[in-house]
């Protein structure tokens, strides 16, 4: 396999981060990253994306719903 292009580099990022690449593939990827600052930025952004999304998607159960849930479970768990 020759040196990676940017596209090939992007295609393997998940496998790279999950440790699923062969030593040879890793060497090609690292060679590309050593010579391509935009792909280094891209890799760092790919790594940061899940954490950013997790923060942004955190939701709080509305208080009224939390009360309803409690009442529902109390009714359902009442001894017969």
């Amino acid at each position: 396999m020759g040196l990676f292009s940017c596209k090939e580099c992007v295609d393997v990022l998940r496998a790279y981060l999950d440790g699923e690449m062969s030593p040879e593939e890793q060497a090609h990827l690292k060679a590309h990253l050593g010579d391509c600052p935009p792909c280094v930025d891209f890799l760092e952004q790919y790594k940061a994306t899940p954490g950013l999304c997790k923060k942004a998607l955190a939701a709080k159960m509305p208080e009224e719903l939390a009360h309803k849930l409690k009442a529902y479970l109390r009714e359902k768990t009442k001894p017969a």
Partner: peptide, 29 residues
Amino acid sequence: MGILSRPPEQWERPADEQVIDAELGSAIE
């Protein structure tokens, strides 16, 4: 040639160092 056609913007700090403002939060949602 398989080269990125547009360089990424500069926002690659780790998530725990970034504040999610309302606009970014909405964009992600």
